[in-house]
């Protein structure tokens, strides 16, 4: 069990590094924490479009958008180890959580993580490509929408799950309830699209929905 916990923690750390790298490639750096959590969520719901398994197929629904406590712990550890820079650090009371949280923007210390990212890109090429494309598609969101767009996401916004309940799209529940994946596969009915095309179309549509409330 200890081994599993350690492995999961290491996987979370790698996940953070890869997400930050993908965001940096798209010019979204330094990355606000809500945007990092949001991209992690979108990566989870949309990974089946690339025939990948979600890293995490459940999360607690919050009114303000996705937040993964384990992911934040991994970020904090990476900051502590000096692999990630934390900038514009604030200690802010969040009414929804009824507690103070550290909010910051994050940036890789690239010289220290370059080799790890290159190795990850070699071993998990498809996952790396998926995250690069997803981050590029995500970068169409304006600064004020970063971290706050997923509340309009096909799965996140579905009214079958209330705030403070668990959204499950494959952890214990049926993966067919991954409505985001279903929506992405609905684009251009009858046409054979590249998986990455569906990501861009999905984020464009999400952006439109956010713009129109």
């Amino acid at each position: 069990m200890v081994m599993d916990t350690d492995l999961r923690a290491r996987q979370q750390s790698v996940r953070v590094l890869v997400l930050l790298d993908a965001l940096a490639r798209a010019g979204l750096v330094p990355t606000p924490a809500p945007a990092l959590h949001e991209l992690a969520y979108l990566a989870n719901v949309l990974s089946p479009v690339f025939d990948l398994t979600p890293f995490d197929a459940k999360l607690l629904k919050r009114a303000t958008g996705p937040y993964y406590p384990e992911l934040q712990l991994a970020i904090d550890r990476l900051v502590g180890r000096g692999l990630v820079d934390a900038m514009k650090v604030e200690y802010r009371y969040l009414a929804e959580d009824k507690r103070y949280r550290v909010l910051a923007q994050y940036r890789l210390r690239r010289p220290l993580v370059r080799a790890a990212l290159e190795r990850h890109g070699q071993v998990f090429a498809q996952e790396a490509q998926f995250l690069h494309e997803l981050a590029a598609a995500y970068s169409v969101l304006s600064d004020d929408k970063l971290g706050h767009a997923a509340v309009q996401d096909a799965r996140y916004a579905d009214i079958s799950v209330d705030v403070s309940e668990v959204i499950d799209f494959g952890e214990y529940d049926n993966p067919a309830k991954n409505f985001s994946r279903n929506a992405a596969m609905t684009f251009a009915a009858g046409r054979r699209l590249e998986p990455a095309e569906r990501l861009y179309l999905y984020l464009d549509h999400l952006n439109t929905r956010v713009a129109h409330g």
């Binding site: 598609a137 096909a154 409505f179 279903n182 609905t186 684009f187 251009a188 861009y200």
Partner: peptide, 24 residues
């Protein structure tokens, strides 16, 4: 496509008839 698009179910016709951009 699977049938249920969740919160986007109302947009199904728009999704099906989307204009392709070539991105990706």
């Amino acid at each position: 496509p699977l049938v249920d698009q969740g919160a986007w179910a109302q947009d199904e016709d728009k999704l099906k008839a989307v204009v392709l951009t070539g991105k990706g």
